[in-house]
Deep mutational scan, measured.
Amino acid sequence: MKVIFLQDVKGKGKKGEIKNVPDGYARNFLFKKGLAVEATPANLKELE
């Protein structure tokens, strides 16, 4: 799953980066803790 990092995550990505991460990791950790959002067209547009 492609995500946009909202904060630096040690060993995974830095704020503003767009990266592919495993689905479970994204849903169960990154999204729940507010560290990233899914890289949807709407979210990508907001990032610009």
Rank of each mutant, 00 (worst) to 15 (best):
E38Y: 06
V3R: 00
G24E: 14
P41E: 14
L35Q: 03
G24V: 12
K32D: 06
V9P: 00
P22E: 11
L44W: 07
G16Q: 02
F31G: 01
E46Q: 14
V3F: 00
K14I: 09
K45T: 09
L30Y: 03
G34W: 06
F29Q: 06
Y25W: 11
A39W: 12
N20D: 13
L30A: 00
I18P: 01
A39R: 02
F29R: 05
L30V: 00
A26Q: 05
L47H: 10
K15H: 05
L6M: 08
F31S: 02
P22G: 08
L30F: 02
K14Q: 10
G11R: 06
K15R: 12
V9W: 04
L6F: 03
Y25E: 06
A36N: 00
I18Y: 04
L30N: 00
A36E: 01
G16S: 05
F5G: 00
K2E: 09
G24H: 14
D23T: 14
A39P: 03
K19P: 00
P22H: 09
F29W: 11
G16T: 02
I4H: 02
L30T: 00
G16N: 07
E46M: 14
P22F: 08
F29A: 05
N43H: 10
G13R: 01
L47G: 06
V37G: 02
K19L: 14
E48V: 14
K45I: 11
L44D: 04
G16V: 00
P41Q: 12
L44I: 14
L47P: 06
A42L: 11
K10F: 14
L30P: 01
K45H: 11
V21S: 02
K15D: 01
N20I: 15
I4N: 01
F31P: 00
G13P: 00
N28Q: 10
V9G: 01
V9R: 01
D23M: 15
G16Y: 09
L47R: 08
K14A: 09
I18F: 04
E38Q: 10
G13T: 03
K32F: 08
E46L: 15
N20W: 15
E17S: 06
E48Q: 14
E38H: 07
L30G: 01
K32W: 08
F29N: 05
P22M: 08
L47A: 09
L35Y: 12
V3D: 00
D23P: 12
K19M: 11
R27L: 12
E38P: 13
V21D: 01
G13S: 04
L44F: 06
V37A: 08
K14M: 11
F31L: 13
K2G: 05
G11E: 05
N43M: 11
G13E: 01
V37N: 03
K15M: 08
K10E: 14
A39F: 12
A42G: 12
G11F: 08
L35S: 02
V21I: 07
Y25V: 06
L30S: 01
K33Y: 15
D8L: 05
Q7E: 12
V37W: 07
N43Q: 09
M1P: 03
I18A: 04
E17F: 03
L47K: 07
V37F: 04
P41L: 12
V37S: 04
N28I: 08
L6T: 08
Y25A: 05
Y25Q: 04
E48D: 12
I18W: 03
A26H: 03
N43F: 10
D8K: 04
N43K: 10
K33V: 08
N20F: 15
F5Q: 00
G24S: 15
N28D: 13
V21P: 00
Y25L: 07
N28R: 12
A36R: 00
P41H: 10
G34D: 06
I4G: 01
L44E: 06
E46A: 15
T40V: 06
P22L: 08
K12E: 11
L35K: 03
G11V: 01
K15Q: 09
D8R: 05
